[in-house]
Design a protein around this nucleic acid. Structure first.
Lengths: 319, 319
DNA sequence: CCAATAGTGTCTATCAGACACTATAGA
DNA sequence: TCTATAGTGTCTGATAGACACTATTGG
């Protein structure tokens, strides 16, 4: 049920119950919403992080998020609000249009009693796919927000892993093993030069560790993203309104961290009904290193890909 | 971040923050855990429901659940506790063994401000797959708990549907349209006689409506279950330790509500590495209506099915 | 004996992926 | 001119599903 009555409850109708109910009589739980916002910048996957201005974990990077405004908003609205605040899109003129293009879905809820030292905090995590957005430096609130390449982050569990800790178990496409850490990052589109990476995120030998259990949340979000683009057309959420098939392929290559066969990918995408719609036009110029102009497409009306764009099978994922 | 500091926070270290923090100064939010517990009884899918003993929705059926014990347990533990309490497994001698065989995973979190009339209640929903368990009538707590066939329940949204209401959007295998309601239930294993169905759940012309938004949670759980057994070996969680391939097929047919080809299913299951392990023995007797004895199997060590047991393609699921 | 079922063999349409090839653009 | 890329054609191995067939059991 949604909320069991407290032990002292003897009311027989609703108003009596409401009158007798005192929420302050119980150990409080805080509910926050955290967002794993992913985007593609210069060909590699980036996540939005904020620098904590106060303890705990002061100075550490964390996922953007904050308290649910009790009684005022639902979880989706809270996630969208937090994302808008931290991306600096809130005050922008095209905030409405930009936010409407961002895909936002619930990822999972994390409720270890000690995940926050202050009190028991239950965090509802969201996953966002966004097209390349401007740097959130200017006009945001006190906290510093920046896009970080995911390869510069340490996603390993802090120490001993707790196997049953509220992790959503619905990633069917592959385990965490596909991306064991920044050290194993192979060459590919994800390792192109990231000149505009935030000044605090060098992909050096010291990967950034995240506050709280946010490394785990981010790892779950990456798993979800990798599985999601197999069965849904959401890879287009990383792109502008008009895009080319090679650009779409770059999304898959960045998220999966694997090179795909250009010809087969092209034919496969066009064979899935409702995935992309042709605009009838082409790009103005060819590729940066030559080649013909590419035709442009828009996202189609399919919500599910049939058949799916299955990730190349990797034997070690079966476990 | 896990919990943003309150507006009045001016502390610079952790102890100062903890001393200054007063959780009662803010609008409270309650966190509950609800469980969609599914099992197979007499060949059809059943869900565990409890009859509410107090308002709101007094007398209505609801998902088993209750408050998260703040500071004492994590979400997984709360869900397991609620499930053990309501199934009556808590006091049983084999409670430990029985509970260990039940698969439990997080489903999604529901946080509409008005989903409970008393206060803003955020509910973390869990999905459980259980083998056929004894009726929970005896020895349970005050509330009446019973297994209900899902076909006897009204899963349509109460009135106008709110499109963005915290529903996890990761069911890739098919929408709600595959199971539009009890009225369209076709013949098949799901419509076998359910003589031992709970006394309060006749599959008559008046389907049962659930309390709160539990119809939606249950619908999401069914969607998840249908998608889950495609890519994971969790269909075995509905069966006893030893089972036959035809029994496993009955699980798929009940969950998907579709007849499967016996021969092809048999070969497919055996072709997936790690799905089932042969025990080397057969059943004592043949089927109820004749036929040879079936070989028995146990669940293998695979966590993911490669290749997957894809559901028969239905054109209307693509949308 | 008959009906139902467990399990295997086989054929075919489909599809993923490899490979090859052209056409077009930038440098 | 050289290289890289967009996009298409074609071949092959794997597979899902249809169909057929046997062997074995209960009634």
């Amino acid at each position: 049920m949604a909320a069991e009555q407290p032990p002292a409850d003897t009311g027989t109708d609703e108003s009596a119950w409401l009158a007798a109910y005192d929420p302050r009589a119980y150990t409080p739980v805080a509910v926050t919403v955290d967002v794993v916002a992913l985007t593609l910048r210069h060909g590699s996957l980036h996540v939005l992080l904020v620098e904590r201005a106060a303890p705990p974990h002061q100075g550490a990077w964390a996922l953007p998020g904050g308290f649910l405004r009790a009684g005022e908003e639902n979880l989706d609205e809270a996630a969208a609000r937090e994302l808008a605040e931290e991306t600096g899109l809130l005050g922008a003129a095209d905030a409405e249009a930009a936010l409407s293009r961002i895909h936002l879905e619930q990822l999972g809820t994390y409720g270890e009693p000690n995940r926050d030292p202050r009190m028991h905090v239950v965090s509802v995590a969201y996953l966002a796919f966004a097209p390349d957005l401007p740097d959130p430096e200017a006009g945001s609130d006190a906290a510093t927000a920046a896009w970080h390449p995911v390869t510069a982050l340490d996603l390993r569990p802090p120490s001993g892993r707790s196997p049953a800790t509220g992790v959503p178990a619905d990633t069917h496409g592959g385990g965490v093993g596909g991306h064991t850490g920044p050290a194993t990052e192979p060459t590919g589109p994800a390792s192109e030069p990231t000149a505009a990476a935030p000044h605090t995120a060098e992909a050096g030998p010291a990967p950034i560790t995240l506050a709280f259990d946010h490394a785990r949340i981010l790892a779950d979000g990456l798993d979800r993203a990798r599985a999601k683009i197999e069965y849904s057309p959401l890879a287009t959420a990383f792109l502008q309104y008009d895009f080319t098939i090679p650009e779409l392929r770059a999304v898959y290559e960045a998220v999966w961290d694997e090179k795909l066969h250009p010809g087969n990918f092209h034919r496969k995408v066009l064979s899935v009904p409702g995935f992309v719609d042709s605009t009838g036009t082409t790009t103005e110029r060819g590729g940066a290193r030559g080649g013909p102009r590419a035709r442009t497409y828009r996202a189609g009306d399919a919500h599910l890909l049939h058949p799916a764009l299955l990730r190349p099978t990797r034997e070690d994922e079966i476990r």
